[in-house]
Design a protein around this nucleic acid. Structure first.
Length: 630
RNA sequence: GGGCACGUAGUCUAGCUUGGACAAGGCACCAGCCUUCGGAGUUGGAUGUCGUCGGUUCAAAUCCGACCGUGCCCGCCA
């Protein structure tokens, strides 16, 4: 059910009948006028017809409007057509349209906004792949929130979605920390484990850079990590597990849950690499070099690929001369696994039971076999600085003969979050003070003050719960409302601004609607006619409600793959939500519900319900809690 | 050297994919609105060479080219 699309289709068929033009051409000419007084839908077909008919566009628009008016019947949602300049403007019958929109939303309830356009497709989304050696900072949260919301959007249009996290538990960072922890007893005091490791890392890094002996020992540890039976490996597993569990607590606070974790060590030890490497070597562009400075390496030759021919070195190493994989090599193997190109070599075991009630499974040498199946589309949420390495993985997939899978590989790129004078650096520790935990704490604390001020008689439990919903909602919204291709400069004043274009505004509008509905429940219901609702603010609100399903589909359609990334406009849904809340606020101010005469009150109540449903569904996609009181 | 992205009022942004009517909001600032369903709201006001210069078009913030500024990427690293 997509009310706005229905209305648009009717407009297109009317215009196509009258102009005898092709339906798709007419459809492309449809736009929404900048000012609702000009009309509800407009068409620019007269510009296109001007040349072939040798008449002025204004004259043509005039004739089209007249012909449409002659065809309109009194039962249609469209009421009249007007020409203005060269535009043909169509006007909806307000009452009939409002009724149509309200009934669509209220009949479907929680399902309103859902469509089955992409039913039967399976999508895998990988995010945020934070190293299990530090707490999430706000930049990691941007990745996670974008990935999570993309999943929500895809599910709403019919996809089956799997959310996957990638756990890099074999890197140098892990070796550095394991080295430190092997030589001293842990002093945990009262600090969350991921925060503890993150701070420890800053110290270790100094030793690594200045002390050659330490560096050599750490390199040795890194080698030992490849052997699952080594002392270093065992130490690192308990360290990584504890860190990851701590990071998950942050993730859960943001309402982010995963289905699977793929651990780097399992990629190395499951047989996936061997299988993938053998398949790669079948490809003529992948060779083991016999001489030169890369003798012994398995490389992919890229000199024939247009977008890589200007690389300083056209041979990209996939497996080093000592046989170990590079990041690219592992990434290609993993991408092959995602599409089911290689048989699933993993075993799985439960890592954690998440607060949403679902278990997250991790790959493991021990657990059970479980074929998770092929995915049709793969989205990797990765910073835009990784555009070239991501593209490389997809190109290699294509070279191996997996053209479709290469085309269905998407790099969802986003810019990093930084501070006014610096970027976040794990080595330098500039993230300290800007972890997601600290930011959420501050946001929730501030929300608590506001909630307490407005609800002095409520229980502490209520205040705490609402403050959490409002504070975390504000942080999530802040990250989603910025277009992903724009850098965010983190400022406390903006993160903690609950006025204007921010999540609490959306939640507030929902709470106001909820209160009206609650109060009305006590009163008797009168017979009503929804077509009575025809004021400007009622009509404008109904239009926004009607556009909701189309807005989600547009967001999915705008996932366009280009050479260096796939565009995803997370801000489209957030700004829709803001606009919807804004229109409700205007309606709220100009149209009393409970104090109106009974027939109008009942009709307006239906509009309020339709709004509440739409806003709740919109917030669910954004991953923000709808609140009933705040 | 090659490549990618961004540049819009004091400030932060939307609009650019798919060209269309006087460029839309938030914050901050000024002035109104509580005997009225919740003021985290609403109404009004001031603030603009849409980085610059060309091109395409009936029409350019939007498409194309050049240039300027900013950030990022081009390792057997991680």
């Amino acid at each position: 059910m997509n009310p706005w699309d229905s209305v648009k289709n009717l407009a297109v068929s009317l215009l196509a009948d009258v102009t005898k033009l092709d339906v798709t051409r007419v459809r492309e000419s449809i736009e929404i006028p900048p000012d609702p007084n000009l009309g509800d839908l407009a068409s620019t077909v007269s510009f296109q017809l001007a040349k072939q008919l040798k008449k002025s566009p204004a004259q043509i628009a005039n004739e089209i409007a007249e012909k449409i008016n002659a065809r309109l019947e009194t039962t249609m949602v469209f009421e009249r057509a007007e020409s203005r300049g060269s535009y043909v403007n169509l006007f909806l019958n307000r009452g009939r349209f409002v009724k149509f929109a309200i009934e669509a939303a209220n009949q479907l309830g929680q399902e309103y906004g859902r469509t089955a356009v992409y039913k039967g497709h399976r999508a895998l989304i990988e995010f945020p792949a934070v190293n299990p050696s530090k707490p999430w900072h706000i930049g990691h949260a941007r990745n996670a929130v974008i990935g999570d919301m993309l999943g929500n959007v895809l599910q709403t249009v019919g996809y089956k979605v799997a959310r996957i996290d990638y756990i890099n538990n074999l890197g140098l960072q892990i070796a550095q920390l394991a080295w430190k922890l092997l030589q001293e007893t842990e002093n945990l005091a009262n600090i969350k484990y991921d925060h503890y490791l993150g701070r420890l890392y800053v110290d270790v890094q100094k030793a690594f850079e200045t002390d050659e002996k330490a560096e050599n020992e750490i390199r040795e540890i890194a080698r030992q990590l490849e052997d699952p039976d080594s002392e270093a490996s065992k130490k690192s597993i308990s360290m990584v597990t504890a860190c990851l569990l701590a990071q998950c607590q942050t993730s859960y606070r943001l309402g982010i849950y995963h289905d699977y974790q793929v651990w780097e060590s399992d990629i190395a030890h499951s047989g996936l690499l061997e299988a993938a490497r053998n398949m790669m070597l079948e490809c003529e562009n992948v060779v083991k070099l016999e001489e030169g400075d890369k003798a012994g390496c398995i490389v992919v030759k890229l000199d024939t690929i247009d977008e890589f021919k200007d690389m300083q070195e056209p041979y990209k190493v996939l497996f080093r001369s000592d046989g170990t994989r590079t990041y690219t090599g592992a990434d290609v193997a993993l991408q092959m696994w995602k599409f089911g190109i290689v048989q699933d070599p993993f075993r799985y075991q439960v890592f954690d039971k998440q607060p949403n009630g679902k278990e997250v499974l991790r790959t493991s040498v021990k657990g059970k076999k479980k074929n998770i199946g092929k995915f049709d589309v793969v989205f990797n949420v990765v910073g835009s600085s990784q555009a070239q390495p991501q593209r490389l993985v997809y190109t290699i997939l294509d070279l191996l003969g997996y053209k479709t899978q290469s085309e269905n590989s998407h790099h969802v790129a986003y810019e990093f979050v930084g501070l006014e004078d610096t970027d976040f650096s794990g080595r330098k520790g500039t993230w300290i003070g800007y972890t997601v935990d600290e930011i959420l704490d501050r946001a929730v604390e501030l929300a608590h003050d506001e909630v307490a001020k407005r609800n002095p008689d409520e229980t502490d439990e209520f205040k705490g719960q609402v403050a959490t919903q409002v504070g975390t909602g504000a942080v999530r919204y802040m990250l989603l409302k910025a277009s992903p291709d724009r850098k965010i400069t983190f400022r406390w004043s903006e993160a903690l601004d609950f006025d204007g274009d921010a999540a609490p505004y959306l939640q507030y509008s929902h709470a106001r609607a909820q209160r009206i509905i609650e109060k009305a429940a006590e009163e008797t219901q009168a017979e009503t006619d929804l077509t009575m609702l025809s004021s400007a603010s009622e009509f404008a609100l109904a239009k926004a409600i009607a556009m909701f399903p189309e807005e989600i589909l547009e967001t999915v359609r705008s996932l366009k793959k280009t050479m260096w990334g796939t565009s995803f406009y997370s801000n489209k849904i957030s700004s829709y939500g803001y606009g919807l809340a804004n229109l409700f606020s205007k309606f709220y101010d100009s149209c009393p519900v409970l104090k109106a005469e009974p027939a109008i009150a009942t009709a307006r109540l239906e509009l309020v319900k339709a709004f509440r449903t739409t806003m709740a569904n919109c917030l669910r996609i954004l991953g923000i809690q709808a609140v009933e009181r705040m």
